[in-house]
């Protein structure tokens, strides 16, 4: 298969970027999207050009390192998969594929398609944990948890922190990410203890870092590679508002 790639190139955070077009030929439909970029880079290096920088690591859809806004979609046009799990057979021969980095004020571009997602770490540092010390814990079975609650907590905990939600949201809102963590812990008795403090601290940090306001469009859920539901956002709203009303 042959494609025209229209890729965002940007030397570093301070430089201005631009799109550059690259033709690429003889790609097997079984090639993954990132392997296609590997092939392009290998060709570029051999031609004496600088390869395209992009984030990736596990290539099994779980580490959350890969990103890319492909033809207008975070993680490409496929549903509920990360970029690394997408294969070229999803595209038509001869397609022009536009590849952009995440665009969000809180995710500044580092180089080409690589952005800084440190803001997500900072939000979790604000309260995305249970304050438990190593070894100061009861027996695992001392805390029974209804199966449905554990399952729902796990649904939210599937978040890989890739940033697609904020990147795809027209408001640049990180609510789905924050909600996934708050909701996952809110469904468990271990997490309930600090529930109010957590919701307030994480939302405050999210706002401070310049993420936008959620307007319930649901685009985050549609583009989330783990299909995390906005029902968790409703729970975050509930947690936050009830915490604030008690203050």
């Amino acid at each position: 298969m042959n494609f025209t790639l229209k890729i965002w190139r940007q030397k570093d955070a301070k430089s201005a970027g631009k799109f550059v077009e690259y033709p690429i030929k003889n790609i097997s439909p079984d090639t993954s999207f990132l392997e296609m970029l590997d092939i392009l880079n290998n060709e570029l290096i051999q031609k004496g050009e600088e390869p395209v920088a992009f984030d990736h690591d596990c290539r099994e859809g779980i580490c959350g390192m890969c990103s890319l806004h492909i033809n207008g979609h975070a993680h490409g046009p496929s549903q509920a998969v990360t970029t690394c799990q997408m294969y070229m057979r999803k595209f038509k021969d001869g397609d022009t594929i536009t590849i952009e980095p995440w665009r969000s004020a809180a995710f500044p571009v580092i180089r080409d398609l690589v952005v800084n997602r440190g803001a997500y770490d900072q939000i979790l540092q604000a309260g995305g944990f249970v304050s438990v010390r190593t070894n100061s814990v009861p027996d695992g079975n001392a805390i029974p948890i209804p199966k449905a609650d554990a399952d729902e907590s796990m649904d939210a905990a599937a978040c890989i922190g890739c940033g697609a939600c904020a990147a795809t949201c027209k408001n640049g809102s990180a609510m789905l990410f924050v909600a996934a963590r708050v909701s996952s812990l809110a469904k468990l008795p271990q997490g309930r203890v600090e529930g109010a403090r957590r919701a307030k601290a994480m939302v405050a940090k999210m706002d401070e870092l310049g993420f936008g306001n959620c307007t319930n469009t649901g685009a985050c859920e549609a583009e989330c590679p783990k299909a995390i539901s906005i029902a968790h956002i409703a729970r975050l709203n509930r947690e936050f508002l009830s915490a604030k009303l008690k203050d």
């Binding site: 969000s104 004020a105 027209k170 408001n171 640049g172 310049g210 936008g212 306001n213």
Partner: peptide
Amino acid sequence: QNRKARGN
């Protein structure tokens, strides 16, 4: 605010 959050 949302437009600002979206970046330039």
